[in-house]
Amino acid sequence: MVTARIPASIAPRPRPTRRALGGLALGALAAGLPGRAMAAWPDHPVTAIVPYPPGGNNDILARLLSPAVERALGQTLIIENRGGGGGTIGATAAARAEPDGYTLAFLDIGTLAIAPFLFARLSYQPESFEPLIRLTEVPLTVGVPAGSPYRTLQDLLAAAKAKPNGITYASPGNGTAGHLAAQMLVSLSGARMVHVPYRGSGPAVTELTAGRVDLLIDGTLLPAVQQGQLRALATTGPHRSPFLPDVPTVAEAALPAYSFLSWHGVAAPKGTPAPVLARLNAAFDAALRDPMVVERAKQLGLPLKGGTAAEFAAFASEERKKMEKLVQESGARVE
């Protein structure tokens, strides 16, 4: 017996069951949810992770910018300090957060450009984030206690060479910009000093002011210098800081090949929706131009930047190339 083949185009189709129809309806509803949820974003507070303790520039920037950002978004920005590991603990928490627009991170040169090459084991990578905006570009200050016997950078380096490991230098933690800037100073000068890492800039500045360490290179020293609590020996950028015009650069004072700039930015977990990223960039860019923010940043010695997410991504990529070479040359490594 021969069985006739019925063309698929005219073959009878089974009627969908009530369960199948219900499933299709639920699928359509689920497909529509992202659009409606996106339109409502943000409908509750946004968490901003600062991967350092209170007192450092990341924390200062978060608290300085948050009022203007909150006005733009219509929601509260909850600042959450998660220090430790040179910023890598907080950065890891941010990278692993849900990419729904409700978690941000105030990151920096240490977490986005230095840590991938400095740390033997790292629980995140720069690609774990969506860059949002660059906030600053900061020359660091080489500071000593007000009562320090070292009047110039040359004095300090000469003492370090005369008595190897007799001078201590603090940093905000292993892998931070201050650590690598000091390591660069050590490498180029040939001096040997003892590294004393702290959990953020705040504790490091406190210990320096008290005279319990000899040296700190950091971006938060300007107020203490202006108040006479610390002495600035040099700044780390290629040009003199407009905030300390009478203080020479490291290149002028002792090491012509030396130049180091720190920077800060905001990022979100990889996969955060593009419309959310666009709104966040616009909110932060506007906050960076707020007159009150600009004036306070000048008082703190923080040159503000701004711009697009794409510009920040390209900048951070180039910085990683520079930092990889610098870390290798310095021989610094955190196991």
Rank of each mutant, 00 (worst) to 15 (best):
E207Q: 13
E137K: 13
A93M: 12
P197K: 09
Y124L: 08
G110A: 09
H179L: 09
E127A: 15
T103I: 13
F106W: 08
T141L: 06
G190H: 11
G101T: 03
V213N: 08
P145G: 11
A210K: 14
D155C: 12
A210V: 02
I114R: 05
E130G: 07
A94C: 07
E98S: 14
A97F: 08
L104K: 06
L208S: 10
F129R: 02
H195I: 11
S128A: 14
T136E: 01
R212P: 11
A204Y: 05
E130C: 10
Y150M: 09
V194L: 14
G190V: 10
P145D: 13
Y150V: 05
A191I: 15
P145L: 12
L156K: 12
F106D: 00
P116H: 02
G200E: 04
A94I: 02
A210D: 11
L208H: 06
Y102D: 07
E137R: 15
L107N: 03
T206D: 13
L140F: 05
S201C: 04
Q154I: 07
L140N: 02
T103A: 06
A105I: 11
G178C: 03
G211Q: 02
A146K: 07
A146P: 07
S187I: 05
Q183H: 15
T111K: 08
L104E: 09
F106R: 01
G143I: 07
L118R: 11
I167F: 08
A115H: 03
I133Q: 05
A95L: 00
L118P: 00
P99Y: 00
P203Q: 10
S189R: 09
P149N: 09
Y169R: 10
T168G: 01
R134D: 06
T111I: 06
Q183M: 15
I114E: 02
T141R: 07
A191N: 00
P139A: 07
A162M: 10
T152C: 13
L157Q: 03
A160H: 06
H195C: 11
Y102E: 03
F117N: 06
Y150H: 15
A120V: 10
T136F: 01
V194T: 13
